[in-house]
Each structure stands twice: as structure tokens, then as C-alpha cells.
Nucleic acid binder design. Structure first.
Lengths: 347, 347
DNA sequence: TGTTAGCACTCCAAAGAGTTGAGTGCTAAC
DNA sequence: GTTAGCACTCAACTCTTTGGAGTGCTAACA
């Protein structure tokens, strides 16, 4: 069957109305709202067709219609297409310029949650190929050394190490120089066993301590690949009864709180979509517990190749337009902070 | 009226049974469970007395009795008294020894939540009087300087600074030396305007850059006084319907998620209780949204004067014994990590 | 004097019956 | 192709009933 203009129009009205009210939509309502001047009976016939095509369904006989996942999908795809028409940005948010990445992310995620009334989530950027800019060792106390590593993207890591022997100041400087000579500009992958052996051979003393230091450095760089998740407004989801009873919603919130399976939301290799915006509707969601939700994710870029993900999680009848608008606004602001101003990312 | 032995016994049975079931307790139930061999009628008389004394109440006529806040208070005080008798520690938890304070705290809070099935919260330790151990400046790029500060308690802070002029390596070393000479061993409060002026006068060049660096340092130390809250298992609270409907519980979870008013839980000056364990029951809670909950807090000490707070939030009918046991276990483990082993606290 | 049995009473919760209203599908007429 | 009309369905609400758990009170008992 063909999805002609009139059917599209009716489907749109059904979805919009349902987004507003959260109640099944009946034929009379549409007859009144659609502006098509059709009687409810005609609408009923069309709805019957739409149901057969799988765009809408009845929760039970003698109830109005509700959009199916396929219906939402139609709506969202349509919307993303002529999104450019949307120019009004009544809702300009402001990210204060603070210089700590963590602070910015926390601020953004709260703002998104507050603005949309849905759950909001953001990941720290994932480097994947952080190169070591330099290492700085300092003697703290007897047998304690502070190792500060700066990675590309101005990410700073540090470790306090305890070693058995006490290395005097001047030897630490030597070791520091040795490390920088060999390790500068390398990625984690390039710092392999072989290289570590070479360095240890170079050193005439403190072989043991040097081994520990190298381990710590590798570990610190490795950690940079761990994705941190920040969430906010998860309790907003409690406002939507259609997400299930207390128990189900609880399980959902629990997953969000304990970050269970959230890595599934990170973009795969498949890549491009609408400006990096990806919409998962109901069962399309990569996470089982969220099969009654919709998830909208976007990708922000901190610098070339270093990117993170922002997501909004809400009921299927979420206000997709608003969500997309918010995400775009946030992305442009993050861009402004990182690219132009050149902020100070930091772990 | 006197709270004689028999009344105490009955009150205890009422509370224990209510903790188990969450249902109002009737006279017949007690007559069967108490082991006192009294008829329900006698129990009724006693209960009537207990109600008059304010230890229990009826949610409505012809319902069983529920402990009042005063009743819980009696129970908890009693329990804390002969707590030493409790030796069985069937539930030995293990905190893996990791060397980053943040990781440890997150691990602890999750473990507590998982073990108790209540919401669990932990704060980072509050220094309040961090002294500067040393400062290490490094040149990153043209016009960019990395400042690493180590505070007492091995807390490390860092800032990447952008300055207008490019300071060559050897001058940075000089400035570094200057800073350490003047600032080492001082607390935030001792680094005042006067001192900053003195330092700037000492420097013949780069007055501007030095000013910025000093600002950053002060700010970084200041930040150390910010208390960070980690929570876990907040969704457990959804399991207890007596905490109110969806909306109320939602507000509670929201407060926990956004850390609203949690600083109220930090211990005041009043100080000592049972081994640092403090129990708030219902309306005793310092936070309005938690007036239907009970909160048990404990204080852990990282080193002399540097301490944080652990809290468990649950329904009034929480298993106080178990909660206290868990808190004690965690505290002793934290002690073991920090004091004996000498871990590596870090911001 | 403390304890107990018995009884009338209260109240909640669950189950059932009846009513209402929104909505549908189908058919026949326009 | 569109519409009016009708019979039918079903959730939601209200009202009533019923059963059970629990209480307070009183009178009898040890």
C-alpha cells in the first residue's frame, strides 16, 4: 500500500497529538484537529490502513491509536530531513566558560536534563591514540616519587609512586631525561616491552625503580582510554508512567546510575548520520532495559579524532524536535569553547 | 508511666517484626512471637500503654501498631549500646587495594549499596587546612605552562595556564624556585595578598604571568575544600513504597542525584557519638526531603584531621544492625588501607 | 490485682456489579 | 470516495458488599 500525502498528514497528527497528551488518539480528535475536513469515519478508514501498514496500533480494541516504533521512526526521519527549516532558537543556553573539562561536562549534562526534562548523559572524550607530550618526575619524600604525564590534548595524569630505595634529586632528573628521550611523542601502543627493556638497559642503576615507574606511566596512559559517564536528571524518567511500573523504571534508573551497558551507546564504526545525531526508538535501542525508551545521541568533537557522546533518554513520546535542538545548541557551544577559545581539557 | 521489662520486650518485638514485614503489627502476632505466653488481650493493654507513651501508633483505627520515630530511637539507642556483643561478621567485604582515592570511594559506596540494599553515599575527605608541599612548573608549549601542586596528604592538583608572553625554560625554573621558597608549607589562608605582593616585587620580569600563576595556585588549593559526593544504589529506595508515591520518591532521588542539601549530612562541631556513628530517624533528618527516611552516617579518617563521611539512607524500618555492621566494616577497611599501608590519596 | 475470654465495633482491602464514555468496524446510502 | 448510523467492545469509574484483621471494653477468673 502507498503512504500518500493524506495518510502522512494523518499519521503526523496522530503522533503529534500523542506526544502532547500521552493518550491514545481517536478518530474524532483527528477529524477535528487535522484541518482536512474529513469525518471521523473517513479517518477511521485511513487509520485502519495505517495500522495495517504498521505505523500505529491499538493498545486494546476500542481504544484510540498509538504510534508504533515504525511510526516514530517515520516521524523522526521526516523531522531530521527538514530540520534546517527550524531556525528559531528561543532556548539559547549558556555554558559558562570554565577551564576544567570535567566541570564543563557536568554542567552540560545538568543543563540538558533541566532543559528537556529527560535523562541526560555525557561521556568524557575518548582519545584512543593519546601521545605522550612529556613526563615530569619529582621527588616528594624519601622513597616517594610524583610522576606527572602530559598527553596530547593537554590531558594531564599523575601518579604517586612508592619505591623501596631513596633516589636523590639529581638522579631523578637523569631518569626523567632518559624517559623523555625515549617516550616523547609515543602512543600507548608504541610503548611495548621491547622499548621498556631498552630503557632499562640504558640505566645503570635503579633498574627496579625504573621498571615501576614505567609500569605506572603505561597504566596512566591506559586509563585515559576509560570512558567516564556523567548523568543527570535520570529521575525525570519517573514522571512517565508508560515506562513501566516502579520496578521496571527502577531497573532502568539503576542501569543508568551504575553505568551498566552504557558503552553500547557509543557510536560504532558505521559513522555518519544527520550531523552525528542518531535516534534510537524503542526496540532499536542497543540496551535491553531501555526498550521502552527513545534515545537520541550526538557526538561532540574536542579536537581532531578526540570525541565524546551526548545522549538524551526519554519516553518514546519525547519531544524529538526540542531534544535535537538542544543537542545541537550544546554541540555548537562545546565547539566554541574547545576550538576557538582553546580550553584546557584535563582528565 | 514506667517502661518496664515486659513493655521493652513487647516494643522490641513490635519493631523487629515491623522491620521484617513492613506491615502494622497486631496483638495476636505478638502474643505468638514474643515468647512471653501472654494472650493477645494482655498484649493489647500493654500496647495501649506504649501508644500512650508515644513509642508506637496506629495508622488508623483497627490496624496494628507501627513504631513511631521515638520507638525507632529507643530501638537504635538500645542496639548501639550492646552492639559490642555482635561479633559475628558473616559478611566480610573486601576493598581491593587500588591506589586512587577516587576509585576507592566509588568502590566503597557501591559495595555498601549492594550489601545493604539501601542508598549509599560517601564524601571525599575534607582537608580544610591543606598545606602546600611543593609546586612544579613546566613549559608545555609557547605560552602554556603546566602547574602541578602537591598538598599535604599527597593530594595533587594541576592547572594548565595560558599566558601572553612566552617564558623560556630557564626562567620558568627560576620562577618555580621563587614560588617554592615563599609558599612551601603554607595553607591557603596564609597565602594572602601581602605575600603575593612580596613575591611579585621579588620578580624582576614576568610580573603579569606570575600574578596569573599565583591566582591559579590559590584557586587550586581552594578547590580542595570542595566536598565531592559519590552515591550508589539510590534506586534501591524505589523498593520501599512507604517512602511515598512515585513523585515523592522521585524528589528524594533527585535530591540525591543532584547533591542537593547533602552537605547537611556532614558532621557539625558537636562531635562524638558512638564511634562516630550517628543515626537520624525520620524527622530528625537534617534534610527535609528525607523526613520519611532514616539516615545512618559514619566518619572515616584518612589521616589526622582529614576526614570524610559515609552515609546510608533507607526507610525508617531499615535493618539498623546490618547497616551499622557494614559501616564499621568499611571504616576498618579504609583505616587499613590508609593508615597501615599508606595508600596514595589524590584528588 | 493481673490476666483472659468474649463480644461489638471499626476500617481497610479486595471483589463484584453496574454505568459511562470513548472508540472501533461495518454497512448502506449519498 | 465520503459519510451517517448502528452495534459492539472495553477501560475506567463508582457503588456496594464482604471478609478479615485488629481494637477497646467488660466481665469473669486465679
Amino acid at each position: 500500500m502507498e503512504l500518500d500525502e493524506r495518510k502522512k498528514k494523518i499519521l503526523n497528527v496522530i503522533i503529534q497529538t500523542y506526544l502532547d497528551t500521552g493518550e491514545p488518539v481517536g478518530s474524532r480528535t483527528i477529524s477535528r484537529l487535522s484541518g482536512l475536513n474529513l469525518s471521523s469515519a473517513t479517518i477511521r478508514n485511513e487509520m485502519s490502513d495505517l495500522e495495517e501498514m504498521g505505523y500505529i496500533f491499538q493498545p486494546h480494541t476500542s481504544a484510540g491509536r498509538i504510534p508504533s516504533d515504525k511510526g516514530y521512526r517515520f516521524y523522526v526521519d521526516n523531522m531530521l530531513q527538514d530540520r534546517t527549516e527550524e531556525v528559531t532558537r528561543e532556548n539559547e543556553m549558556m555554558v559558562e566558560k570554565v577551564d576544567r573539562l570535567e566541570q564543563i561536562l557536568k554542567q552540560v549534562v545538568r543543563m540538558l536534563a533541566a532543559n528537556t526534562n529527560y535523562a541526560s548523559i555525557i561521556t568524557s572524550p575518548q582519545g584512543r591514540r593519546s601521545r605522550l607530550k612529556f613526563i615530569q618526575l619529582s621527588r616528594v619524600d624519601k622513597g616517594q616519587i610524583l610522576a606527572v604525564m602530559m598527553l596530547e590534548g593537554n590531558v594531564v595524569k599523575h601518579r604517586v609512586l612508592r619505591i623501596d630505595e631513596d633516589i636523590p634529586e639529581e638522579d631523578i632528573v637523569k631518569i626523567n631525561l632518559l624517559f623523555n628521550t625515549y617516550l616523547q611523542g609515543l602512543t600507548l601502543r608504541e610503548i611495548n616491552m621491547e622499548l621498556v627493556q631498552t630503557i632499562r638497559r640504558q640505566a645503570d642503576t635503579y633498574k627496579n625503580a625504573i621498571g615501576m615507574l614505567l609500569d605506572a606511566i603505561v597504566e596512566a596512559i591506559q586509563e585515559e582510554d576509560d570512558t567516564e559517564f556523567y548523568t543527570s536528571g535520570t529521575t525525570n524518567l519517573l514522571k512517565y508512567p508508560e515506562l513501566g511500573n516502579r520496578e521496571q523504571t527502577g531497573a532502568l534508573l539503576h542501569a543508568l546510575e551504575e553505568r551498566q551497558g552504557l558503552e553500547q551507546l557509543l557510536p560504532g564504526e558505521d559513522g555518519e548520520d544527520n550531523n552525528g545525531i542518531q535516534v534510537y526508538i524503542g526496540s532499536e535501542a542497543p540496551i535491553q532495559t531501555m526498550k521502552d525508551c527513545s534515545i537520541v545521541t550526538a557526538t561532540y568533537e574536542l579536537e581532531e579524532g578526540v570525541q565524546g557522546t551526548i545522549g538524551i533518554i526519554g519516553p518514546k513520546r519525547m519531544d524529538y524536535k526540542k531534544v535535537v535542538r538542544n543537542l545541537e545548541s550544546v554541540m555548537s557551544q562545546l565547539d566554541a569553547i574547545f576550538k576557538k577559545d582553546g580550553g584546557e581539557p584535563e582528565s
